[in-house]
Design a binder for these strands. Sequence first.
DNA 1: GATGAATGAGAGTTCATTCAT
DNA 2: GATGAATGAACTCTCATTCAT
Lengths: 198, 198, 198, 198
Amino acid sequence: MAAVRGNGDKRKRILDAAVVEIARRGYYNTTVAMIARRAGVADGTIYLYFENKDAILFALFDRAMSRFIEKGRAQIPQQLGAEHKLRRIIELHLELVGEDRDLAIITQVELRHSLHFMGQLSRNQVRDYLGIIADVVAQGQAEGAFTPEAEPLLAAKAIFGVLDEMATDWILSRRNTRLESKAEAVAGLILGGIRLRA
Amino acid sequence: MAAVRGNGDKRKRILDAAVVEIARRGYYNTTVAMIARRAGVADGTIYLYFENKDAILFALFDRAMSRFIEKGRAQIPQQLGAEHKLRRIIELHLELVGEDRDLAIITQVELRHSLHFMGQLSRNQVRDYLGIIADVVAQGQAEGAFTPEAEPLLAAKAIFGVLDEMATDWILSRRNTRLESKAEAVAGLILGGIRLRA
Amino acid sequence: MAAVRGNGDKRKRILDAAVVEIARRGYYNTTVAMIARRAGVADGTIYLYFENKDAILFALFDRAMSRFIEKGRAQIPQQLGAEHKLRRIIELHLELVGEDRDLAIITQVELRHSLHFMGQLSRNQVRDYLGIIADVVAQGQAEGAFTPEAEPLLAAKAIFGVLDEMATDWILSRRNTRLESKAEAVAGLILGGIRLRA
Amino acid sequence: MAAVRGNGDKRKRILDAAVVEIARRGYYNTTVAMIARRAGVADGTIYLYFENKDAILFALFDRAMSRFIEKGRAQIPQQLGAEHKLRRIIELHLELVGEDRDLAIITQVELRHSLHFMGQLSRNQVRDYLGIIADVVAQGQAEGAFTPEAEPLLAAKAIFGVLDEMATDWILSRRNTRLESKAEAVAGLILGGIRLRA
DNA sequence: GATGAATGAGAGTTCATTCAT
DNA sequence: GATGAATGAACTCTCATTCAT
């Protein structure tokens, strides 16, 4: 009965161990043996659950991005106005990244690095995420709340860039501030820009 | 004189070779031998100019960021108004990144990765760059052109994030568009934000 | 009764699977898991029937050589003259080897390899086979049909060598000829030698 | 000056070490580290001279077969009659194989094994050798010394089979007899066959 | 008896670095 | 200064074997 848990459990334990180790040392400086030791399994066991070392990293991305998109879908009501939705996205993004520093290091630092050299597998999910933001921008333009001059996808990338930089900055500066605390100010900048309004 | 140039020449050739190889394969998948071969020197010669493999990467960052800041200083007149300065920074950033795709890959992809795992050496220069942008923001607020609500360093990070994402997106999508062509639209977003002006 | 058959059945299925896999890939490139999969049993089940991987190979040789000697005994009447017996042996050898290419590969290629490195277990049976041929040679000499100069065991080895090379050649050249078709010519050579008779 | 020797020397030392180790344990039970240790070089050095472990085995075959064919060419005068030539081939074959037991083990046991599973690379040289014997058979038929009934290539294979079996038998029986001592008797069998002459 | 997930020793191979020339 | 052959530690991955179920 509980046996079924054993399987999922072990895969999860390997991924959890991988997050910690890779966040701490980077993908290339983390050995499979390190992950195995932290997960409490034998080296060979890793290969029962993942085809090779790369596959662990991909699985990590998958899991992280899925959680991201899923939480976004669950916590942003469809019927909300675009500005509220955008504010919510900004809050959620910073919240989720801020929740698990190790995972954040991986998505901000390793993901970026690997996207380019390990194929495009994971870029698709970033694209999905950008698509969600772009939809909100388009909605805002339809509502007459957002400037019609902005190309939605370009705006989405800009927004993502701001959020991403906040996250990266938070990781690289090892201070102990809460990432979410910036949400209000960031939302102000994104919505209002930097130029003084007449 | 010629001797010194010969010397500097070899160091430069190694760095130039490193840019190409590392951009193509990533730092960890590039061997010292590959760099040596492209530079046209013996493997051992590398170690006459660099203490170890990591040192090559650091030198690469140094050179790239120095060029960046230097060009910025040279091409943005001090007496310009803040908005013009900011527009010029945006143009220059996209221009410079767009000029050398190999170098761009390294600064966008490898730099970020290394910042975290190889110590703070290079982070300082990013900080310098953010400082320059922050100064322009502060200048704009003093001039009454920019919103006084924005904390200059935070705004600088947001601006950097937008530019950085544009650059990263340009690299990851292997399309043949010119990166500079986005400058106008990006400047619009950064200055005016996304919310429709009254 | 059915239980016993079920048992023998599983052992047989494992050996049959082993023949195919080992013939295809060689002993060292065949994993126990491959054999188990083809046999339709679990990996662990193999070890209920064989002490270890080597034991499978030994059992294979045993089975093959037993069939060989057994068929020889059954199909070569004791009262036959030596020359007829020898012709029959030549035919039978080529026939049997030619019947099952997979098994032939194992006896020609793997057996030889293992004879040397896995102990003498199987060499005994080759010796038995050589003994049978040597007896026929001696019988021929007693009958006055074969040359008395030839030392029977040496002659037996020479005969075996010819047959063995024919078999090996047939396996290594992947042509689709029938091995038995060479029997007549081979018998001629063995009996008459290569020198023209006066 | 002597430096040039260093290179050829090292490659030779590796091959010599490989012969001993592989003959003793078989190819698959010999590790690269074992060969390196016996050769007195570091593990990694092996890979400066050979692409991978397989390449060592191939090089061994090449060297062995080249020596074989070369010695054959050097020591068998073209103008000899076919029977003398054939006797000389038989002597030389047994002599050469008998000279270096380790090498013999490899050619008789490992060659055979690998021919089938590692591609056909080396089979070509066996074919060359068979061709040489076949030519002698054809010469003998032209001279009217050998029976015209025998197809030369088939006869060559039969002869090779006899020689090969003698060699294999000599290796597998660990007795201390000299292999060459059988040459006379073997030649008699090959030339005269087993049937008593009228 | 049968299973197959788990083990962990051990394999081949790579590559940053050194140093005799 | 320049070379590049040599090093050997360290990596990823495989697979015969075990044992709890």
